[in-house]
Amino acid sequence: MKILYFAWMRQRIGLSTEAVELPADVTTVDDLIDWLIGRGDGYAAAFEKRDVIRSAVNQDYVPFDHPIKDTDEIAFFPPVTGG
């Protein structure tokens, strides 16, 4: 699975994108966040404000209970500030 991070989440994790192999018990966005947080302090800091973070699967906004699969492109980012 391809994961992308933007803005201050990218800075805290130190990566803009990475490819990961999903463990079998990671089936939703929520599961993925829990699993990522366990990978290190940078991830924990990036997902600290879990309630404000937005997620997109294959470039569409999705809620955290959305199912995910290995072929998906998933992105995590802070609230958007364009315009």
Binding site: A7, A75, V80, T81, G82, G83
Partner: peptide, 23 residues
């Protein structure tokens, strides 16, 4: 709509360093 849903993020350079704009 652009303000709330287009995936853009602004980082401002200030005397205090780089600051991410908040919604």
């Amino acid at each position: 709509w652009l303000k709330t849903d287009a995936p853009f993020w602004k980082l401002e350079d200030t005397d205090a360093g780089g600051v991410w704009v908040e919604t």
